[in-house]
Design a protein around this nucleic acid. Structure first.
Lengths: 224, 224
DNA sequence: ACCTGAACACCGTTCAAGT
DNA sequence: ACCTGAACACCGTTCAAGT
């Protein structure tokens, strides 16, 4: 019989994140190498040279295992203390973007309830920048939530794209192909999509992501 | 041996969306009733009074099945032709919000590659409003993508919340409990989160969602 | 052309038994 | 206190055989 009582035990931490670098971790290594479907109790047990049942002494189930792995990665994206709040938000957003790029399996995990996890720290960090921007107290929750949702939204989309593409896909080639499809859509039904086919081909995800952040930041300061 | 060749066959459509109302559909009904884990080939086969193998004649696999079910629901959120582009975007956003509220399992599905699906129509519709707002041609893709990401991000978050909460949860009670936890966080480490605990308790997801949309819309028009 | 349903190769999870 | 590993109750998917 296992426990799975609230806090993660030291042994799990070691199973999930032993060593200085996350790729040393058995669970994260499995996830990075083979995606969410690659993290199996049997595969993890084999990597830890034990039986599948042993893992249940430390973790309540697969959800907790995935949650612990996610927390380890998110904890590493701690925001730097930039001067201007706008820059701090951009830095945090890019940190999230890059973390997802390195570990696409996080995307699906980021939508789980934050609870008492490292994600709370990220939310707190965003909130402090929102305060620093001079947003009235009554609007701070709303504004921080909007930034939070946007970041998680793009993160999730990007992770899904990374997961759905075969590992050996050439990005330029792929975008070119999709762009060509868009350019040939019905001119009446898809007038807009057709017209931005070229912008799709040449776009940079990171820059697009930042542009959206700036849009929200502009909306925040323009609204007073 | 099945086919799963591109377009979904009429029989799948009937398995997925037969009848005028989606709750008549076997697959969607299963998903709504028991979540993503409730949609099994065995359960679906039983509901269709056939064997699990029969489904593979119409669908390539589970991914396609989930995709088809998602497409049916998304197709029903077709935007109305409002006059002001801002109102049209708000209407579309609320349509997505409500669809997720009714079918929380869509949340995880919305991140898959849009391809040639009803989601393309939604993107097209957003894009047309962006054009109507007078956004310069060179920025239209960026702006439409930002709105798209925000809507999908909040949608995903909301669906995850709906899924993680037990079906009989009282919302006010739940928010009150989380709010109490926030209010008791460490004053140094979580100064911001503590300060918005009250706003969390009284917030309305729908209104918060719209406020974020308005923030982006303001950012769009303020930037010229 | 489409359905049947047993069979295969897996899963997550449990639990008596060990140390 | 923690590990072992067989066993249970499922999965998605395949495929010979039917109609």
């Amino acid at each position: 019989m296992g426990r799975g009582t609230g806090a993660v035990s030291p042994s799990v931490i070691s199973a999930v994140s032993s060593g200085a670098h996350p790729s040393n971790s058995a669970a994260i290594g499995l996830l990075d190498a083979a995606g969410e479907s690659g993290l199996t109790f049997r595969a993890l047990a084999e990597r830890l040279a034990t039986g599948p049942g042993a893992i249940y002494w430390h973790v309540a189930g697969k959800d907790e295992l995935l949650g612990a792995a996610t927390d380890v990665v998110v904890a590493m994206t701690a925001g730097t203390a930039d001067t201007a709040p706008q820059d701090a938000i951009r830095a945090l957003a890019l940190g999230a973007f890059d973390a997802i790029d390195d570990h696409p399996w996080i995307g699906a995990q980021l939508t789980r309830a934050p609870g008492q996890s490292p994600m709370m720290r990220v939310f707190e960090h965003i909130g402090r920048q929102v305060q620093a921007l001079g947003v009235p107290a009554a609007d701070q929750f709303t504004v921080a939530s909007a930034l939070w949702s946007y970041i998680l939204g793009v993160a999730g989309q990007n992770a899904a794209n990374a997961r759905s593409a075969p590992p050996d896909t050439d990005r330029a080639e792929f975008l070119g192909a999709v762009s060509a499809v868009w350019a040939n859509l019905d001119p009446d039904e898809y007038a807009f999509t057709r017209s931005v086919a070229g912008q799709l081909r040449d776009h940079d995800d990171r820059q697009e992501f930042l542009a959206g952040i700036d849009l929200i930041l502009t909306g925040i300061t323009a609204g007073r």
